Simulated assay, not measured.
Amino acid sequence: MFALVTDIAHYPDFLPWVVALRVKSDSETESVADMIVGFKGLRESFSCRVEKRRPSHVDVHYLEGPMRHLDNEWHFTPLDDGGSRVDFMVDFSFRNRLFEALAGQMFDKALRRMIAAFEERAAALYGAPA
């Protein structure tokens, strides 16, 4: 799961609303990328830095774009059956009040759709859980 989450170049292949992504730099411990997201005719781009602490932790930090801030954390814990427990936290706010209102109304639904996209991608790459 760590590999799937840190393979940001492939996000446009499976994540809803990710229209395009450009990796500006990538190393074993850090990536920097520009992402364009789109929803119902709205498009915004932003930049972020992804800190990779293999195999247990990923931090994503907002660099620039339409938001006031955006931070998210991924924590991966191995399970005895060979799977992983994945904990995810996101904290964000928009500069634009319209986007803030839209995000507030759609947040739960959007988050569930994003989680499902990661689960489907994991099943496609690694096989469905037993």
Rank of each mutant, 00 (worst) to 15 (best):
D91R: 09
R121V: 03
R121S: 01
M67R: 11
W17A: 14
L125F: 03
F14H: 08
A9L: 00
M89K: 07
W74Q: 05
H61L: 11
F94P: 14
R113N: 05
C48D: 10
S45W: 06
A9D: 01
V58Q: 04
E120Y: 02
A128G: 11
V60F: 03
V50Y: 01
V86W: 00
M35P: 12
R112M: 10
M114W: 04
T77S: 06
R85P: 12
V18K: 01
L42W: 07
V60E: 04
F2T: 02
N72T: 05
F46C: 07
G38S: 07
A116G: 14
R43Y: 14
R54Y: 13
S93A: 15
S93N: 13
E73G: 01
A110G: 05
G127A: 12
A123S: 12
S93I: 10
M35N: 07
P55S: 04
M35H: 06
V23A: 06
Y62H: 07
R95F: 05
M1C: 13
K109A: 12
E44W: 12
V37R: 08
D81Y: 00
V86Q: 01
A130L: 02
A117L: 04
S47F: 06
A122R: 10
Y126H: 14
G41Q: 00
P55A: 04
D59F: 00
F88W: 02
R113P: 04
G38C: 05
L79S: 03
F2M: 01
H57Q: 09
M89L: 08
L63Y: 03
A3R: 05
A116Y: 07
F92V: 15
S56Y: 09
S45V: 10
A3L: 08
E100T: 15
D13V: 09
S56H: 12
A3D: 14
S31C: 13
N96V: 13
F92Q: 13
A110M: 03
R85S: 10
L111Q: 12
K40V: 03
R43L: 14
W74A: 03
H57K: 06
D91H: 09
R22I: 08
A122N: 12
A20R: 03
